[in-house]
């Protein structure tokens, strides 16, 4: 068989994966194991990227998301396991920011701009605006509202999927639903980061 570009690429990636796996097998500290896993995810994404088609781009995204999601859950389990409950990160405890109108204006600008952009980056920009706002104000309300918004965006996304599958002639509606769903989802996820941090200054 011929050694093509694909095989050379795979060789490099597999060597990287082997080094990472051996490191994980030798590591004994839990936190270090956890950090090494973050490293191991990268060769897995590289194997997918080696496909080199548009399909690869679409497969990297779920792969990445699954890795990040499991890390999120595992880090929380780690905190419970090690009884890490103190929250050393405080909000932006600057008196001027907490009172002035500027954070509000900047946040509104970022959210509006994010909604215009839509899609993944739009969600990121809008989320950044909300994170900044919550951090500067030391937001203390319960998370129910945000979680509900996250659930609704998920439902919108699923609805878009069914429109695509069973009513393909309404693809435009489905595309808009999916785009709005993803904006909501990314925004909510990022603003949750802001509120979790904001809780520190109680």
């Amino acid at each position: 068989m011929m050694w093509g570009q694909y095989s050379y690429g795979l060789l490099v990636v597999l060597i990287a994966a082997a080094i990472a796996f051996i490191a994980l097998a030798m590591e004994t500290d839990d936190l270090h194991r956890f950090l090494l896993l973050d490293l191991i995810e990268i060769p897995s994404l590289a194997v997918i990227a080696l496909l080199g088609t548009d399909l690869a781009e679409a497969l990297v995204l779920p792969g990445l998301t699954v890795g990040i999601a499991e890390q999120l859950a595992l880090s929380q389990i780690y905190c419970v396991k090690e009884r890490i409950s103190a929250n050393p990160v405080h909000g932006l405890n600057i008196e001027v920011i907490a009172k002035a109108d500027a954070p509000l204006i900047i946040s509104i600008f970022l959210v509006v701009y994010g909604l215009i952009l839509s899609g993944f980056t739009g969600g990121g920009v809008a989320g950044l605006g909300l994170v900044f706002f919550f951090m500067s104000r030391g937001y203390k309300e319960d998370l129910n509202l945000l979680e509900m918004a996250s659930g609704i965006s998920w439902a919108v996304w699923i609805f878009a999927f069914f429109v695509f599958m069973f009513l393909p002639q309404y693809w435009y509606v489905a595309l808009m639903c999916a785009a709005v769903g993803i904006v909501l989802k990314v925004t909510v996820k990022m603003s949750l980061v802001g509120t979790m941090w904001g809780k520190g200054d109680e």
């Binding site: 995204l61 779920p62 999120l72």
Partner: peptide, 16 residues
């Protein structure tokens, strides 16, 4: 795929 992927994210988020 995309339906399963945010569902995994959702589950992980629920656990956390």
């Amino acid at each position: 795929d995309t339906v399963v992927e945010p569902t995994i994210l959702f589950i992980a988020f629920a656990i956390a």
